[in-house]
Each structure stands twice: as structure tokens, then as C-alpha cells.
Design a protein around this nucleic acid. Structure first.
Lengths: 226, 226
DNA sequence: GCGATGCTTCGGTTATGATCGAAGCATGAA
DNA sequence: TTCATGCTTCGATCATAACCGAAGCATCGC
């Protein structure tokens, strides 16, 4: 009756529609200002302010003041993963908020999950890296293997260059549309950044959609199978 | 602003303290009756009835009538995993509902997560099976390898005997106390059942705690390292 | 048949919190 | 300085839903 962590506390935080909209918007990985989030949630600046105060107190988001702006981001990758898994449940229960349309198809194809690549393209990458032995799971710690370091050369990425931070280098993140894992962590972020800097794909407006160019997708897929 | 599944819908379901208590109680894996759940939640039978109706409608639990009783279980392993990950967030935010005590230590050591073994003992099993190559991850699909089938012989378990069901045979489930994966899925359930039938451990009362006997723990650990 | 038990429906009370208008307080620009 | 912008605090309104008492309806045991 009273063992374990207080699950209701944070669930009720996510359970309010306005706050859920804010959190969903923050899944795009960008830092957003308080007024931008108010707009996303469809409420006035005053109410958004109180919502944000609660989210900060609950440890779900972080805020950073810069001049007269207040920039807000998700507090951690773990928060993003919980949100993603909740989306999986909601989608499975058949309660999509939007009818399936072209916009939704694009979301399923490729989108940003906090700061890394998700959707079909994300899982393809993850699966391939596993198949060639670039990734190895030991316990829950997903690790980049020796050959994985070399393999990353195709992307002109040097894993050794990443400073050792507290956040894990690799992270398996469950994808709500594909129902499988994709690559998260600092490496996931780096790969996405690389794809963008190569001009293979770019984020669409303020949404989570990542739009690959036809040529970009071809190059990306070829890089995987070679 | 309005893409993706309706996350607030289910989060608000979990967000009510009474319902959260019910769901936490159901994490023990047993089917509970409506009145038992009312007691767990600390509310009267009437209010529990309406809460349960909501949980069923939301797809979080399943109910089965038997005589004049109503037996309730979690709807799926996925629900259990989401709850477990929410506990991880809540625990990380430092908002445990109970002060750390002997009861809590037992919970961290070994407990049941829906229907499989969690806590330190669960992660030890998972790590070991990975280390000896009994488990392999391919994409998100965790799989039992050839050698894994043989390895299971130590437990007198024959994976081939499990009927092929819709639920995956193996499942990595994130542990809120250990912050790592443990073994879920039908195999996880079978292993726990085996441990119990061997008398190595048993569930404690109505809680989630699994109490190993000194001898049982010794045998279990020896089986892993041999 | 009878009473007891388990669950549900109905009605009404109450508390929580989501919301906004208006005013206050910073910061940055002119 | 003065004005505009971004955010917060205060106060009040209002809707939602959590809750229980009482009554209703099944099912079980006798």
C-alpha cells in the first residue's frame, strides 16, 4: 500500500493537458522560452508560469535564465524516455490525438526524440549497428565496441573525441511508433548532428519531424549496408 | 502542439493517488479483487469501483468476473514497464514515500516486477546471462541464443517447451532501484516460478518483496557462476 | 426461501487546481 | 530617463472529479 516511490506525484504532473503539451513540445530537444511554451500549451503566460514552476519543482524540466528570457529544457534523457514510453501506451490504447495523415506518416518515418534520431530511420540505424557488432549490450549498459569505433569513421565521427561526461555514451531508447529501440545518448545526439550538418536531413519548422532529402536518405542507407 | 499520442490521458489516470496505489499493488503480479484494491488504496468500495472502471476504460488494467468477485490485473507487461520507469523517475527525484528501512532494503534486494524477478537478484541474473552469451539483443528484440537454451538446463527449464505466444519470450525491463535491466517476458516469469517451486525463495505476504532463503540464494548464485 | 457478501449506481458535498485579469518587477532598447 | 517586452505574483472564478452514504442488484451459502 505504501512501498516504492511516489508515482502519482509525477504522473499527475504529466497528466495535465497543458503540461503534457509543453513536455511533448520539449521532446523536440530545443530549449523553448516560457512564452513559446505557453503558446504550445494554448494557455496564457500567467498560467504557463505556474505550470513551469511545478514542472521544475517536480524535476521534469530545467530552466535557465538568460536576460529577460527563461529557457526551458527537459531535465534528463530519462524524462524523455518515460515520455516516449507513455506515448507508446497511449498509441497502443488507440487514442491518438490526431487522425493519421501525411504529417503523422512523416513523424513515424523520422523525428527527433529529445536530441537524437527516432522513427523508422532511427531503428534502422540501431539495428544495423547491432548486426555488425558496433554496439554491444552488457547488462543495461549499451556500449560501443572496438569495431564500433572504426565503424563510426563512415560518418566521419570519432567517438574518442567525445568528452567523457556523466551521461552515457550510448543509450537504447524505446520508440513509440516502431515499438523497438533506437540509438540515444551522446552518440545518438552526435549522429543526428552529423546528418544535419551533412545536409542529408533537416528539422521541419518547430515540429519533431525530420525531413530527409531523397539524396540524403539514399546516402544514409548506403552507408549502413556497405 | 498536437502531434503524437495523447499522453495526458493515461498520465492523469496514473496521477491520482488512489489509482496509483492500486496499480502499485498490482505490480505484485497477483490478481486482486475490487475490495482488496479498495483497501490498498485506502478508499471505500464505491470510489474504488469508479476508479477501476476508469482504469479499465483507459486500458491499463483488465478485469475478469468470477462469481461475485471481480479480479483485476495489469493489462500488459508494457503497462508494468511504464510504471516501473515512472518509479525510477520518482525515486531519482528523491521523493520516496517511505523512509528507507529494512522493508525497503528487502525491496531493493529482490522483488517481483509484475511477474518476474526484479531488484539486485534480478539484475545479477540478467547480467550473467548476457555475459555468458545466453542472451543476445538484436534491435529491441532480446533473444535467447542457442547456447542460452542449453544454459537454461541448469534451472531444469526447457525454453522449447514454452508455447509460442504473442508476448515476447525475453524482455529487458528497467529496474527502478538498480537503474539497470532485468529479465522480463515469459522467460522471466518461468525463471521466477522455478525459483519458487524449488523453494529457494517465496513472496512475502501481499507485498512485492521476494524473500530468498540463505540456502536458496547460495544455490542461485552458484548456478550462475558455474 | 433467507441472509450475507461483493460490487455498482445515484445524489450531493467538498476540495483541488486550472484558468485568466490586473498589477508588479525585472531586463533591454531608445 | 522612458517605453516595451518577458515573466511573475495576487486575487477571484469556475469546473472537474474525488469522495462517501444510501440504496440497488446480483451471487453464494444455508
Amino acid at each position: 500500500m505504501k512501498d516504492g516511490p511516489d508515482i502519482a506525484r509525477i504522473a499527475s504532473l504529466i497528466g495535465d493537458p497543458a503540461r503534457a503539451n509543453m513536455l511533448t513540445a520539449l521532446m523536440a530537444g530545443r530549449a523553448l522560452t516560457a512564452t513559446e511554451l505557453a503558446h504550445e500549451a494554448g494557455v496564457t503566460a500567467q498560467t504557463a508560469s505556474s505550470h513551469l514552476a511545478r514542472l521544475v519543482a517536480g524535476g521534469l524540466v530545467q530552466d535557465r535564465r538568460q536576460g529577460r528570457h527563461k529557457y526551458v529544457t527537459l531535465a534528463s534523457d530519462e524524462v524523455a524516455r518515460v515520455l516516449e514510453s507513455l506515448m507508446g501506451l497511449a498509441a497502443g490504447a488507440g487514442h491518438l490525438r490526431t487522425r493519421t495523415g501525411p504529417r503523422n506518416a512523416a513523424l513515424r518515418k523520422a523525428r527527433v526524440c529529445y536530441n537524437h534520431l527516432a522513427g523508422e530511420m532511427g531503428t534502422v540505424l540501431y539495428d544495423r549497428m547491432h548486426a555488425v557488432g558496433a554496439l554491444a549490450t552488457l547488462g543495461d549498459a549499451l556500449d560501443l565496441t572496438e569495431s564500433g569505433h572504426a565503424w563510426l569513421g563512415r560518418f566521419d565521427l570519432d567517438a574518442a573525441a567525445f568528452a567523457r561526461g556523466r551521461a552515457p555514451l550510448c543509450r537504447a531508447c524505446l520508440d513509440w511508433s516502431e515499438r523497438r529501440s533506437h540509438l540515444g545518448g551522446r552518440l545518438g545526439r552526435a549522429v543526428l548532428a552529423r546528418i544535419e550538418s551533412l545536409g542529408w536531413a533537416q528539422r521541419e519548422g518547430q515540429s519533431r519531424v525530420i525531413r530527409f532529402t531523397p539524396d540524403g536518405e539514399r546516402r544514409f542507407r548506403r552507408l549502413l549496408v556497405d
